[in-house]
Design a binder for these strands. Structure first.
Lengths: 153, 153
DNA sequence: TATATGTGAGTGCGCACGCATTGTCAATAG
DNA sequence: CTATTGACAATGCGTGCGCACTCACATATA
């Protein structure tokens, strides 16, 4: 295998990085200035809202994110100080702690999520028709299926 | 505009994030364990290798990256301590400083870049034929052209 | 030339993170 | 029941970064 990219390969890969960086920069700036939360904090609030009764274990949150348990513990700390979550001891496991979405957290999340979705639609999704979005999804599915196969062994 | 994603939209956007995260995680782990450099340091070495005589101004490096000038100054510091770059005063501008690729930096970069390209090909590019890669590139081009239009005003 | 304004690089400080460790509790073995 | 091992959350420490600032120098203006 060659140690160089073809022009087509270099473009397909390199510009993917640029597109991702541009979108993330815009999303993070919007979340910070309008809602005073980082993108990581936003994602935690979002996962909590999906969970039953708006609560998840710290460890579970860490596993479904890019953070370690220690980083997640501190992130939840910040959310607690901001009043967006609270901690609750796990009744069934004395070691465990839940992060629980507060009323204030739900309200902040609803607005932040709406802005988040609007920005992604406006800047990214609106550029492609449904057929093209399906095509993109098919590309990602192919990648993720290969990942699932190779990480299991 | 709706405040929800359609299933197709959510997949096309959400899985793009997953694909990017998976690739970046693999690349960063490879660069760190095999070459003892971060991905940001790798990109700086790469840009230096593209520049004439392997030298660029700190400010210029910062502008073409995600870092601020202060962050870039410190990143170059680390590269200097590792022996991969050296600093040189700019003769034409007494304020300025160049980061210059050393021999050791060139050697490290050549190997790291080969590994980087091999990993991207193996894990990502090899999943798609040339027609599909062209299509991906066309999607990215559409996005970046829109960005160029809207950021200029 | 003399002064004011702008720019490049570097630094003190605060913040967020990972790693290693600790404290607490659960689960298993004897 | 006791001891060992393992798991969850939290914390001390080191590191990398941005922001605000400083210093050195360049550029513009009178």
């Amino acid at each position: 295998m060659s140690t160089k990219f073809t022009a087509i390969e270099g473009f397909a890969w390199g510009k993917l990085l640029n597109v991702h960086a541009s979108m993330m920069r815009q999303l993070e700036e919007m979340l910070q200035t309008q809602y005073h939360i980082s993108h990581g904090e936003f994602e935690v609030l979002l996962r909590l809202s999906w969970a039953s009764e708006g609560r998840m274990r710290i460890r579970e949150l860490a596993e479904t994110s890019v953070l370690t348990p220690s980083g997640m513990s501190r992130l939840v700390d910040r959310l607690v100080r901001s009043g967006l979550t609270r901690r609750e001891n796990a009744p069934e496991d004395g070691r465990g702690a839940y992060a629980v979405l507060t009323q204030s957290g739900q309200e902040r999340l609803i607005e932040a999520e709406a802005s988040n979705i609007a920005l992604v639609k406006q800047r990214f999704l609106s550029l492609y028709n449904e057929e093209e979005l399906k095509q993109l999804g098919a590309f990602w599915r192919r990648f993720l299926e290969q990942e699932a196969n190779t990480t299991n062994r």
